[in-house]
Design a protein around this nucleic acid. Structure first.
Lengths: 174, 174
DNA sequence: ACAAGATCGTATGCGACACAGACGATTGGT
DNA sequence: ACCAATCGTCTGTGTCGCATACGATCTTGT
């Protein structure tokens, strides 16, 4: 109920546009704005948070796999990871299986930061979907997941995984 | 059935991220790519098409209203409209009610172009939602519309409006 | 074993875009 | 008639996607 009117103000009322593209864009704009406000001065804003989520939640063998998963350019991923390393949130370690690849793993501090931000982002998502009831929110998430393809992994799951056993996130390989 | 595997290839399979933001981003990326491919060398790509849809479908009294509706910066809207004018697709006319505002109206040629592109974009959307059946697609559109707020106006409606009476789109005020 | 091609990470340049700030033109309130 | 606010435009800055290039490394063919 906090910022429910912002979506309407932001989108205006005359939306005689292509509804799928417009709806996706409008909802994503609202999402990014809320998440940006929620996480404060995290290294690269919403992108940095999403990257950290992917690092913690999924096992990506290389920076390139990470970039492709998030739809980020690989040249951007380079300095994005640079800044995350500088902030002490992740570490770059050469993949022993293929020394061309650099595996990105979260540090203890990074895992804790994600777990903390996860809660705020969940609240931001609830605010974003304020016009939908519980069933509708679940349906929307399910349809998005189905439309984009098989998406094994969840923020909620990654969150619980991190909060439950944070020391495992620090040493994934050995 | 044409490019159904692209979504999966683009998104990878390990999607252990924040599912709402990731799903919205992934779907919007697929949408933009397909629409960009579908419309060819339209002045500003998908943005130009969406702007034209808003010009034809909704009545926006000023460039600023147009920009806010689409989530575009007003300084970008300036040269975006410049290029649409140069391409002969729209006209800028001072709003008689408030001469600070410039009303953007579609030309005959612009209205026809939108009607033509509308069909291709519809096909692109169907391709994007290839994993969902008819009911699910309708539900997704409905939930998006409800979540973003009151969205009076549709591409389909604007399309029909344009194709049905294209000469009215050329002279909306008088 | 060696050469040729492919892949990954990084660096560089270019174009598009969001954002902030400023300015002239115009409007509305006092 | 003065003054604050709004709209459109211009300029500058920072971020990002995209293409290109290069070294390091892996893979494949011979």
């Amino acid at each position: 109920m906090t910022t429910r009117t912002e979506t309407q103000a932001e989108t205006g009322q005359a939306a005689g546009v292509d509804d799928l593209g417009w709806g996706l864009g409008a909802l994503l704009r609202g999402y990014r704005r809320r998440v940006t406000d929620a996480i404060g001065d995290f290294p690269h804003g919403a992108r940095g948070y999403q990257t950290m989520c992917a690092v913690v939640g999924g096992d990506h063998p290389s920076q390139l796999a990470l970039a492709r998963d998030l739809g980020i350019d690989k040249t951007v991923m380079t300095y994005l990871v640079d800044d995350l390393v500088e902030a002490g949130l992740v570490e770059r370690r050469p993949n022993p299986a293929d020394r061309r690849q650099r595996q990105v793993v979260a540090t203890e501090r990074g895992a804790r930061a994600v777990a903390e931000l996860c809660r705020r982002v969940d609240a931001a998502e609830d605010d974003l979907l304020g016009r939908l009831d519980g069933d509708e929110r679940a349906t929307l998430r399910r349809l998005l997941s189905k439309a984009t393809g098989p998406a094994p992994g969840h923020t909620a799951e990654a969150c619980a995984l991190v909060t439950g056993e944070s020391e495992e996130a620090g040493r994934p390989t050995e």
